[in-house]
Write a protein that binds this DNA or RNA. Sequence first.
DNA 1: CCCTTTTCACCTAGGTGGTAAGAT
DNA 2: ATCTTACCACCTAGGTGAAAAGGG
Lengths: 198, 198
Amino acid sequence: QVYLCNRALWLTFHRHQTEMIITKQGRRMFPFLSFNISGLDPTANYNIYVDVSLADPNHWRFQGGQWVPCGKADSNGEGNKAYMHPDSPNTGAHWMRQEISFGKLKLANNKGALESAGQMVVVQSLHRYQPRLNVVEVHEDGAENASQPRQSFTFPETQFVAVTAYQNTDITQLKIDHNPFAKGFRDNYDKIYTGYDS
Amino acid sequence: QVYLCNRALWLTFHRHQTEMIITKQGRRMFPFLSFNISGLDPTANYNIYVDVSLADPNHWRFQGGQWVPCGKADSNGEGNKAYMHPDSPNTGAHWMRQEISFGKLKLANNKGALESAGQMVVVQSLHRYQPRLNVVEVHEDGAENASQPRQSFTFPETQFVAVTAYQNTDITQLKIDHNPFAKGFRDNYDKIYTGYDS
DNA sequence: CCCTTTTCACCTAGGTGGTAAGAT
DNA sequence: ATCTTACCACCTAGGTGAAAAGGG
């Protein structure tokens, strides 16, 4: 009923333990969450959002080229861990027509600005998280339709460790290779694009 | 109850007869429509949209430094002339909290792509148009609340002639002076920004 | 010592009017 | 002759990881 659109890319990162940069003002995820959904009632209204929760009870550190547990997770603060898709609320027909993309979701650390809630998901560095897709049927006034179950979908390949700087160089290289905004750091960039000119 | 936010700027253009460029793929307006609204029911839901209709029954041409009527307006095609604000539907509280800005509304000519309806308002070149703000109270399912009047607000200073290239050089200069995206065409740009360096 | 923050060059993405070519 | 289109240099706006500086 729900498919992770860019699953192959997520798996490529997941094999090396995905890391996501967090900053005070918020940083986009890469890869970002994107889903295809089917089986909704085309005429009913739904809110669709992503929330992010701890994937395990540990604090982690990167040591000797590996992520190793290191004490208990801090569970203070907790902040805002849900991001409503900007198209919400909308009809089942709308949600099924095209990819449901969370490309503008930003991850922030809890010290920073909480004011722009709704744009940000606040997480703690060096903790491991599991994103989750939530589909809630709502009445026309936006209140949850209690007669319908709230559905959640979890894709283990989207787990990530929040970091303030990349730890695993394999992850750094995958980001550079696949994120269009990091094109300037690709090794062959100069050779391909300016090698013939100068 | 409704105020045009950037009224002084609109008036500056209006004194010279505002022109707006239209293209096949759509061009933003400058100045753009932006409003402050008050007096709504904070808990009721509203759709807010702009529509654009002919301001007069004439076809116009720019001759001898002036706009002069030139035959009857073509009223074929008509296309999509309404642009729903992307926040619609939303509560009165939401609409009153901040400026209601239509900065992403695009004007297109009718030969071009109609497929991306909702993003575009289709108008005909060398015709004069009057934008209008519309506020419609809706039930929670999005249907218009027929027991409440549909309110429309018209600001004559936002009238414009649609063109495919600027006719009046005064208008061109005002666009260059005030639109940040046209900064590169300002006469003093080099002097101010690079004069001390090289 | 380890982690976080700031700043930077470099990119993507897309909004400007000018200009020359195209269309009618 | 007049209007439209396509392309361009130049800008705004903002997303990258690197590197240096800051903090506990």
